[in-house]
């Protein structure tokens, strides 16, 4: 079985069907992009892979573990060991500084280690913004804090939902280069949702979704 394995996943909401039977496998260490029009179910799929949401039907296996078999707290534990998230809105705790936001993830994982948190922020180029609150940071800087936070506990998977959606081209390139560098150093698996072709082409493989299904699966060579 592949590292990430999604089997016939259906997600129905009261008012809409977001996923109509999705099958996909991702090898370990791959960088996969998911593209598709708005409302095609990309975010829903990503949230289900990360265990933030549960499918109506079908199952998700990560590293051989059936997410559907985990209790809520077991899921939380699994998530903090294995998965890092980056969202479009930066989703930082507004009253905490950069370094405290990163340390929050450490706290949930095990114990806090300020030196390690500072080091992680240095790696994303924010050594000079350690004690700023999110409101004092630019959008690109906020996303870099999120990346530092997502990677602080050395996850095996990074799930990113439109991480550059709110950024200009220059900041987008910065973020992608940063991700590329970290990916090549640490070999975590990336699943990145976007509708921007400039962003999607940084991946090694491109999945296209439409109306709750994957309609195209192509390799990319960069």
């Amino acid at each position: 079985m592949e590292f990430i394995s999604v089997k016939d996943v259906v997600k129905e909401y009261e008012t809409a069907v977001a996923l109509r039977g999705v099958d996909m496998d991702v090898e370990k260490g791959r960088w996969v992009s998911i593209v598709g029009p708005s409302g095609s179910g990309k975010s829903t799929l990503l949230n289900i892979i990360g265990g933030l949401d549960s499918p109506t039907k079908g199952s998700v296996f990560i590293d051989g573990v059936d997410l559907g078999s985990l209790s809520e707290d077991a899921m939380a534990r699994f998530r903090r060991e294995n998965i890092g998230f980056v969202f479009q809105q930066s989703h930082l705790v507004p009253y905490l500084t950069s370094v405290e936001n990163v340390m929050l993830a450490q706290y949930f994982h095990s114990i806090t280690d300020e030196a390690e948190a500072v080091e992680a922020l240095n790696r994303v180029g924010l050594g000079h913004r350690l004690h700023h609150r999110p409101s004092q940071l630019s959008g690109g800087e906020q996303q870099r804090v999120c990346i530092a936070r997502a990677l602080i506990n050395s996850p095996k998977i990074l799930l990113a939902d439109e991480p550059t959606g709110n950024l200009d081209r220059e900041n987008t390139r910065l973020i992608l280069e940063l991700l590329k560098k970290l990916h090549s150093e640490e070999h975590f698996t990336i699943i990145l949702v976007t509708h921007d072709p400039f962003v999607s082409k940084w991946a090694e493989r491109l999945l296209t979704m439409e109306d709750g299904r994957i309609i195209k699966d192509e390799p990319l060579y960069c």
Binding site: G50, L52, E72, D73, A76, R77, R79, R80, E81, I83, G84, F85, H91, V93, L104, A105, Y107, F108, H109, R149, A150, N153
Partner: peptide
């Protein structure tokens, strides 16, 4: 609530 959701997404269990 979004703060709580965020905490959960970065791996917080209910206890913490």
């Amino acid at each position: 609530l979004d703060e709580i959701g965020l905490m959960k997404s970065i791996g917080a269990d209910s206890f913490k």
